[in-house]
Design a protein around this nucleic acid. Sequence first.
DNA 1: CGGTTGTTTGAGGACGTTCAAGTACTGTGG
DNA 2: CCACAGTACTTGAACGTCCTCAAACAACCG
Lengths: 236, 236
Amino acid sequence: MRPADRELFMRTELYRRVGPEVAERLTRDCPVQAVQRGVEFTRQGEMAQDVHVILSGRISLVAEGNDGEETVITTFGPGEMFVTPAAILELPYLVTSRTTTRSRVLLIPSERFRHALQAEHALALMIVAQLARHWRLLLTQIQDLKLHSARERLIGYLLRECPAGAGSASVRLPNKRNVIAAELGMTPESLSRAFRRLRPLGVESRGGKVEIADVARLAVLIRGTQSSKGQGHEAG
Amino acid sequence: MRPADRELFMRTELYRRVGPEVAERLTRDCPVQAVQRGVEFTRQGEMAQDVHVILSGRISLVAEGNDGEETVITTFGPGEMFVTPAAILELPYLVTSRTTTRSRVLLIPSERFRHALQAEHALALMIVAQLARHWRLLLTQIQDLKLHSARERLIGYLLRECPAGAGSASVRLPNKRNVIAAELGMTPESLSRAFRRLRPLGVESRGGKVEIADVARLAVLIRGTQSSKGQGHEAG
DNA sequence: CGGTTGTTTGAGGACGTTCAAGTACTGTGG
DNA sequence: CCACAGTACTTGAACGTCCTCAAACAACCG
């Protein structure tokens, strides 16, 4: 692992919770893959081989239907580990994982990971906490899908990008619009229309930048169910 | 805990994985609640107070929207623990849990549970495995919702109720139809229509009983994406 | 400059929902 | 045993939301 990667690795929840020695033992000789956007790390249906730790970039978990259609389940960012369940249970991956941006990812062989889990209580506790958080993340995904419309999901997304409590805000979209559409579970066309229907509410979107005149006005439209979904390392 | 409950408790994954002594210590003086159908154990938004172990019966996790509408996230059966994530993270419940049948449920105070988690590696490992399985369960839920139609979800449900490999089958529905509709993420009306559109395919549904002429014929319609979702205690 | 890729807009359609009505169960008391 | 109410289930019609398909437009890059 090169110094820059080590730097990133030391910021992850994994490193901080299990401590230097265990982290070192767990990741000794593990490769860090630096990849372009659109590269796949796991394929749905394949046997779990590695556990992945995102050092930088973003990775989507996508499920594939039988006729080739795809759907984004969730997206993870720096510091997160993913596909641990498949590795833990020694089962095939349920999802294909694919970078949505250029990324650096640390790979830990799943067998080594399982052994460490047996041996190191601190690691087990960290994984418990991480899985608990991810479970809740997925739960809010389902809530979003089943009881919010496309427009409401977009509002929720924008509010999450806003600095909290601001009266007006200027948001930089972190991705291309079609990627955002996928993350929100809709087509690019629907996203475009959703944006247009937000214009009367004081939302101007020009390219990768979105100007929101009154954040509170948007928040009121979805208040109640919308749960804040922490992105980073913290438990929240 | 009365003998009959103890009997049920000893069949749970929790008991079998952590062993008699730890299980005893964890559940000493814990109440077993025997409740009718429709009783709520947790309310969405309330602080986590207990971890629940289902001894018998079935319990649905439902999410509530801001205008009172509800949606069933998933349903758990005997041997399963639920709302552990909220207890682990010391956060409010994300869901309301409600019995769909008469049930017996063991309640473990969440603080005691958290302490046991810190102290007992075996418990942590059991929870890791359980959360990993539940994560995958939720994942397949999302897949189902986003890339299968109502008809396909019904077929998947029926196949899961069938004894595997049979040419024809006679299935007893474990719930009222409106409960099944909720579990499958549709209205009773839609379920009814879905059943009717399965009739040409050799599915006769009379009351709580469904006769399937050719199981393989149904299976072929959803082959590929449908993942078998184990119901009981086993990891699968 | 053309070619490629991403975004917007429009028309049409599929799917599931709601609302409303009608039909079939289930259990109760007479 | 029947009549009855209450509940569950089915069926129909109208509607809404989002998707697909198709085309126009914009932006970017060689």
